[in-house]
Design a protein around this nucleic acid. Structure first.
Length: 395
DNA sequence: CAGGCGTGGGG
DNA sequence: TCCCCAAGCCT
């Protein structure tokens, strides 16, 4: 706390100042973490690499409060890496449903299988090996290795980037390779010789609490006046924000094809949005317009539904449902669901599906891994079903 | 390397 | 309401 500018001879460069701070950075952070950090999150107080790994994957680009209920449910169903490795992918996706970034779930599943098959069911201890596993990058590998094995490795997540940008006054968007390289080097240079778990946790705790995105509480910070951003009044402008860019909008018509008490779902391909999840059939190619109801569109919808449900019966009715807009990070999606009722002649609807198509009833929908907006559509249907005793909808 | 990849919370 | 972005990784 005394390494302030008053101790620095006039004319010394900012690098020298930063070097002074760097010398005491880790020990001050570790002391702060012990007193003010988080110590009771569900994935703390364990050395079980499986539990630590699971938490780190779930926490990628996802806030702590969001992860907590998913983490508990996941561990209950898959208590160890062997249980996860031997599970069907659909079970994994179902427990991930709603958490987003579904490639994480597919990579998690594959990673568990690799750990079982190639590492004897035990997670490797060194970060370099960990980083070769699916879904584990440099930062996640370092976190797992530090928490589970006391490895001397640096993390660089959003919290660390914010702390480093402010404390050391680093200008430039941290998402660019140039700034990121600089920050990796700085993060490595600051590592303490011991207490890696406390240090690593401290970086994340500081960035998630005192040094959060909103209004940083510099008065309580262990780096107070040694922080370049605070000393120069740049707490609000550091880290440099991401350059913004216009996001495209897409219009998609989805089919709610109902036969008896079941609705048709399709498995999405692994690549692309909602990869590996079950969703409603889409009208392709998309109309890409907000003009929702014209004769040719209805004819295309009827034709598509007829093709998909040909074995079960002819299309009896086509009714537009309440549309919804879903905002992603990189585009805005306008969903227009259409209820297509088939007049069923046969009886074995449940077995009419295949590996990538399934006719699900209410219980099946609840258990399936669906994207959030598709689940909303499904929920709206079952709500009316219980109100009216059947799936008869107006919009 | 730049861009794709979800969802929800907070200002 | 709108905008930013969160314990990043993969291609």
């Amino acid at each position: 706390m005394k390494a302030s500018s008053s101790d620095t001879p006039v004319g010394k460069s900012a690098d020298t100042l930063a070097g002074t701070l760097a010398d005491t950075f880790a020990e001050r952070l570790i002391a702060w973490q012990a007193e003010h950090g988080r110590h009771d999150l569900p994935w703390q107080n364990t050395r079980d690499a499986y539990r630590i790994w699971l938490s780190e994957i779930m926490l990628q680009q996802t806030q702590v409060a969001t992860v907590i209920p998913y983490y508990g449910r996941f561990l209950e169903r898959f208590p160890d890496v062997a249980a996860l490795a031997s599970a069907p992918q659909d079970d994994v996706m179902a427990l991930w449903s709603g958490l987003g970034y579904y490639s994480r779930a597919r990579n998690l599943h594959r990673c568990a299988q690799v750990v079982v098959a190639e590492h004897g069911g035990r997670f490797p201890a060194d970060p370099e090996t960990l980083a070769t596993l699916p879904g584990i990058g440099r930062s996640t590998a370092a976190a797992i290795a530090a928490f589970a094995y006391d490895a001397h490795a640096a993390i660089l997540d959003g919290n660390v980037k914010r702390v480093l940008a402010r404390v050391f006054g680093i200008e430039g968007f941290p998402g660019t390779p140039k700034i990121e390289r600089e920050m990796w080097a700085l993060a490595e240079s600051l590592l303490p010789p011991r207490d890696l778990p406390a240090y690593t946790q401290g970086m994340m705790d500081l960035g998630a609490t005192l040094c959060g995105r909103g209004a940083p509480r510099c008065g309580e910070c262990p780096f107070d006046n040694d922080c370049v951003a605070h000393a120069t009044g740049r707490e609000r402008t550091l880290p440099t924000s991401k350059p913004k860019k216009a996001q495209p909008e897409r219009y998609v018509d989805v089919l709610v094809i109902r036969a008896g008490d079941r609705v048709l779902f399709e498995r999405r391909p692994d690549s692309g949005i909602w990869g590996g999840l079950w969703s409603l059939p889409e009208l392709t190619p998309p109309t890409d317009t907000r003009d929702a109801d014209d004769a040719s569109l209805r004819a295309r919808l009827t034709g598509h539904a007829t093709a998909l449900g040909a074995r079960l019966g002819p299309v009896q009715s086509l009714v537009p449902l309440q549309g919804l807009t879903h905002v992603f990070t990189h585009f805005k999606l306008h969903l227009r669901p259409w209820l297509v009722t088939l007049s069923v002649n046969g009886e074995s609807i449940a077995s009419a599906g295949d590996a990538n198509r399934a006719w699900l009833d209410g219980a099946g929908v609840v258990a399936a891994g669906l994207p959030s907006p598709i689940r909303k559509i499904a929920d709206a249907l079952s709500l009316r079903a219980s109100d009216q005793g059947q799936l008869s909808l107006s919009n």
